[in-house]
């Protein structure tokens, strides 16, 4: 199991209905590519976040397949249209089977 994994998300707390917001996410993760050797010249097993998913109220916003070339602590920035108040859910899938989640509620100005 990867150690020291921490997720971080930034987006506005409040928007106008129909506004496009910028969402930034980061997960602290080693992203061990599987291509490196340890000090005894043995391959270090691959251990990466291989998929990242964002949903808004059950609706898919973005779904990413991630390869071993992505550097330590993957950072994603993307935009989403917010139709009304609701909750964004963020899910990171680890090679080791672990699933990390985070969520943020967003409200709409009247």
């Amino acid at each position: 199991m990867a150690t020291g994994v921490k997720t971080r998300v930034k987006l506005p707390k409040q928007v106008r209905a129909g506004e496009v917001v910028t969402i930034k996410t980061l997960i602290t993760h080693r992203m061990e590519s599987g291509h490196r050797l340890d000090s005894d010249n043995q391959p270090i097993p691959r251990s990466i976040i291989h998929r990242f998913l964002c949903e808004f109220e059950g609706e898919l916003v973005i779904d990413l397949d991630i390869g071993p070339g992505i550097s330590t602590n993957p950072f994603f920035e993307f935009q989403a249209l917010v139709p009304g108040p609701g909750v964004f859910t963020f899910i990171w899938f680890d090679d080791d089977g672990a699933i990390y989640t985070d969520s943020r509620a967003i409200s709409v100005m009247s």
Binding site: G4, R8, H29, R30
Partner: peptide, 20 residues
């Protein structure tokens, strides 16, 4: 970042401009 992940996993939380 690579060195921190190797030597000090989980110890260091860097909050850059993107996260306030």
């Amino acid at each position: 970042e690579d060195g921190w992940a190797t030597h000090y996993p989980g110890l260091i939380d860097w909050i850059g401009e993107d996260f306030g």
